[in-house]
Nucleic acid binder design. Structure first.
Lengths: 143, 143
DNA sequence: ACACAATACTTAACATGTGCAACAATAAGG
DNA sequence: CCTTATTGTTGCACATGTTAAGTATTGTGT
């Protein structure tokens, strides 16, 4: 039988395991606030945006497909965490921003999230972490 | 508002993006053979195993939860790619191995997979790749 | 202006996977 | 034995992935 490179050494698997290890720290925090990973990605990207974002932008930055994102936004909208409006300049687009509640929720989660991130940074090492981030970025760009 | 570290620089997001970039090369190949990522993970791990594996082992190595794995194995079983038998030594366990068809399918996919992996290795650089794999492993262990 | 293509987003429909709880079968320990 | 733990499966509710179709709007060529 053809032997593939060892399963453990495969890059996609290594990336999956590493991500899983990292996310293990954050998942309980998100669960406390009834947020999925994807919902949190959307909230984060909106929180860091200067101005309302259109759906396409959000999709690009969160790595979500249009249909998934539509549903997620509908859910966040129902929960009152985001506000959707038709872009006055282009009625095809809808622009999205955090509501006051959304900002409050984000502000309540962010410090905890930051702390857990710092824990990773400390146990892994800040130097190695920034090294890793550079490599990941380069991998992404080399494709 | 509390500002979290930049969205782009967050480790989980960077890992997600990098994995996505890597998987983009493999997904079309898997799609050709009607395999999901998870199914392929199971086939790979079985292909590299010396002897039949029990379900718990497979779950650990593929990062799949028991219920998901049960269903995936049922599907692969229906397609005739794997064989499930009750472990004679412990009737609670079921042991799984590739069928002859499963081995054939794996053998047909493996060379293509290997080639695409080599492409990544070349465009990213073998040295950086092994460097990255080491860091990922260390991150995983540091948790 | 007008017809037609392109764009942005939504909706629908289906498959897959997650996460939790309940369950059956079996094994292990007092 | 009797109880408890383990292993795997199943059921359920839910979220997402994925493709295709649909709606509204905008852009373009003539």
């Amino acid at each position: 039988m053809t032997t593939l490179r060892s399963f453990d050494d495969s890059l996609p698997m290594a990336l999956l395991r590493a991500r899983e290890a990292a996310m293990r720290r954050f998942r309980p925090l998100l669960a406390e606030h009834d947020l999925t990973e994807q919902q949190w990605r959307v909230l984060r990207v909106l929180a860091s945006a200067e101005s309302p974002m259109d759906v396409g932008q959000i999709a690009d930055e969160t790595f979500l497909l249009g249909p998934s994102l539509s549903r997620i936004l509908a859910k966040l909208d129902n929960r009152g965490l985001v506000v959707r409006r038709t872009d006055p300049a282009d009625h095809r687009r809808s622009v999205v921003r955090l509501s006051a509640d959304g900002r409050r929720l984000f502000a309540r989660i962010a410090p905890d999230s930051e702390q857990r991130y710092t824990e990773i940074e400390q146990s892994f090492g800040a130097d190695r972490l920034s090294n890793l981030l550079v490599l990941l970025k380069e991998l992404e760009d080399s494709t």
